[in-house]
Design a protein around this nucleic acid. Sequence first.
DNA 1: CGAATATAATAGTATTACTATTATTTTGAA
DNA 2: TTCAAAATAATAGTAATACTATTATATTCG
Lengths: 224, 224
Amino acid sequence: MKQILSNFKIQVNENIYLKDPESSKLGKKIIDHSILLIDEIGFEHFTFRKLAEQIQSTESSVYRYFENKHQLLVYLTNWYWSWIEYKLVFSTHNIADPTTKLELGLEIATRAPAEDEQFSHVNEVKLGGIVVAEFSKSYLTKEVDQENQEGYFATFKRLVSLLAEMIKEVNPEYPHPKSLISTVIQGALHQQYSREHLPSLTDCKNDDELVQFYKNLVLKQINF
Amino acid sequence: MKQILSNFKIQVNENIYLKDPESSKLGKKIIDHSILLIDEIGFEHFTFRKLAEQIQSTESSVYRYFENKHQLLVYLTNWYWSWIEYKLVFSTHNIADPTTKLELGLEIATRAPAEDEQFSHVNEVKLGGIVVAEFSKSYLTKEVDQENQEGYFATFKRLVSLLAEMIKEVNPEYPHPKSLISTVIQGALHQQYSREHLPSLTDCKNDDELVQFYKNLVLKQINF
DNA sequence: CGAATATAATAGTATTACTATTATTTTGAA
DNA sequence: TTCAAAATAATAGTAATACTATTATATTCG
């Protein structure tokens, strides 16, 4: 994966930052360390002041990249889903059989990133953890409609529609591909969180079982 | 429903408040108006100061009932899931056929509450909306493990285990009842939210279709 | 090299999330 | 019915958060 993708830079919609953090050293430091810090103390306790301390910079410097910490979270989650989308598009590119293709897509969309997948300055494993715990906070706000119009959630919606298309290739008659896919992706995040913190909400002992559970759910559902 | 349940008072675990809001007029006002206010401005913008203004009381008076607004949210979501649990237990009580019972249970757990179900001083419809938009914020925090130990999420876990038992009665061999149920309940909340704010993530046009989608998902999945 | 731009340092404001103190009102047991 | 205890209201205050503004210094790039 590292070799395949190392030429690509994840692009995030320019509405989601004031100044592109990929365009400077400070910008990259903001991204890298915000991932470490949010992973460590959680989004609620995370502040630009604390982040600035960690990177030996100042609050106002961070504010020149992002309007506020909410926008930074949206940036991080978009980066994450873009990365999943790249992996999905590359991996499924040459696969002819629709069912195999769908299974592979589900695998990529539901499995938590592993240590050996690192391909950028970003810590993808910790970012995956942030997505599990914080992604839903990025859209469960009163500002969702306006932000949706500005493309804040476009990456995730595109991923859902990509996988929904894969379902349609397996069974063009299936009536609820988008509901099924978004239920499965969100469900996988939730099950990962549950395994760690609310174990009575899951039966999956490990990631393999979890991925298998969702693959099975989808295939059984769409095959008539 | 109103008649059946009007004798029952929803009980919330006493760890989830400092003073029982059901024990006084002010307490009930806090609950009622916090639902209206959170529904109106969202949990992020909600403060005890704003709430106190609405009910012509003071911040410090509210603080004598709840440690902070997070605890109030946990209280409200527990109340909601307790109410769902009551409806589920009553409705399925005398049903012999396990499949019919499960279908009814899924119906109650996935359908958004309707206007005519009002049975208490609480606005159940708006509370349902709050659960859709804010429930996940109640456990996606760094304090989840400690709060889980104190019983903050017991009501939801009990509801999941009730429905998981219903699955086992239909098919004792099915290996992932808890994962399936928690995926479905969370999924239904998410689909309700999507229908309103991120429509490209759903195919369900209305509540009936949504409920049917999840019933079908479960039944197809567990029937061998 | 010099101008433009980015960053750092510092300070300041409004709001939030509380805590503390005292006064007033309500209540409920003798 | 009274009077003590408890609940509530009024007021004030603190530390942290979420910003904005100003100026000084460093960097970069045409």
